[in-house]
């Protein structure tokens, strides 16, 4: 009986946030109309998908004991670049008037390559120059924001082509948004990458003990650059999807998304200490955070209190991570 009690305590301790949000979800579901509805489920999936992709990108940085504070701004820049390349030809406020119509998959590839290059720069600064990831990515965050302001001339962007809008608003079987398909593909890819490839093993090895990994023959520099490059590509995809979902883009797009992504990863078990993290955990973390936001919205909670509540959840996530670290010691 005592052993069972300890297991329950450990379970509650490890999953406190998930249990809390689950209880909140039940209360919201039974006290409000339409919470448990197909429309709300569709909305949840649509909100989760780009954030999950962003969190997958950030997770590699966290697993190797780094971080990427430029994620949100990179996604914002990607959204703005996508918007500029996918505006209707006859739109009066079209920015790139000289550009012919480009298919959206080509634009997606272009923004992923551009953001991948920015991610690679982050990786090089961190791996070669040994600048702490917090500082390197904080600097890049500001640079990307400035670049976005210059490129867009601080004007909001809209007037998208219908083919682009369909990506963000289309659904399959009346309930599964197209955005979710992107998220599923990325999730499966990252699961494969983290669990079945050498890159994944190197990543966890670096996160566990960088010196030991290097002694064992892991090319730490190349792996770190690959991680940040891949993260950049994910921010590019996330930004592309955020733009189409919102139907518009501006320099404010993506603001704060990196903190949400880091919080979601932490809630999902990706430790800030590195070496630990699963794609399923990332998915749970993003789901918990989005469900929390939707619950507070449905309950009619004042928006200011929503922000404070989200902040408290982030602190609880870090406190639980700290508790796990100290309990292990």
């Amino acid at each position: 009986m005592k052993a069972k009690k300890i297991d329950i305590k450990k379970f509650v301790s490890n999953n406190a946030i998930i249990i809390l949000v689950f209880i909140l979800m039940m209360i919201t579901g039974f006290s409000t109309k339409n919470f448990f509805s197909a429309d709300n489920f569709k909305n949840l999936l649509a909100n989760m998908s780009p954030r999950f992709i962003l969190a997958c990108g950030v997770s590699g940085c966290l697993i190797t004991k780094g971080t990427d504070l430029s994620a949100g701004r990179q996604a914002g820049l990607a959204a703005c670049l996508s918007a500029m390349m996918l505006q209707k030809l006859d739109y009066s406020a079209r920015v790139l008037t000289w550009l012919p119509s480009i298919p959206w998959p080509v634009v997606l590839l272009i923004v992923m390559v551009i953001m991948g290059c920015i991610g690679a720069i982050n990786g090089c600064v961190i791996a070669f120059l040994k600048v702490p990831p917090f500082i390197a990515t904080l600097g890049m965050q500001t640079i990307v924001y400035g670049a976005c302001q210059i490129i867009t001339n601080n004007q909001p962007l809209g007037g998208f082509e219908d083919s682009y809008l369909v990506v963000g608003r289309g659904v399959i079987l009346s309930i599964i948004p197209y955005l979710a398909i992107f998220a599923v593909i990325i999730g499966l890819y990252f699961w494969f990458l983290y669990n079945k490839t050498r890159h994944g093993k190197y990543m966890y090895a670096i996160g566990g003990n960088e010196n030991a990994a290097q002694v064992a023959g892991v090319n730490v520099v190349a792996t770190l650059i690959r991680i940040y490059l891949l993260a950049g590509m994910m921010y590019g995809m996330a930004g592309f999807l955020i733009g189409t979902k919102a139907g518009g883009a501006s320099t404010a797009t993506g603001f704060g998304y990196e903190l949400e992504a880091i919080a979601a990863c932490t809630i999902g078990g990706v430790s800030a200490n590195g070496g630990v993290g699963k794609v399923s955990g990332i998915l749970i973390g993003v789901l918990v955070f989005e469900v929390l936001k939707i619950c507070l919205q449905f309950l009619g909670v004042d928006p200011a209190y929503t922000f404070i509540a989200q902040g408290v959840v982030i602190i609880v996530a870090v406190a639980l991570d700290l508790r796990k670290y100290l309990a292990k010691k």
Binding site: A16, V301, Y305, V312, V313, V316, L320, L326
Partner: peptide, 25 residues
Amino acid sequence: ALDIFIGILIAAFIILVVLGYLKGH
């Protein structure tokens, strides 16, 4: 002590949600 701190944070979260609900309505 860490468990107590986490407990206090969770209680604060619940109070915030209740206060936000009351303010929102």
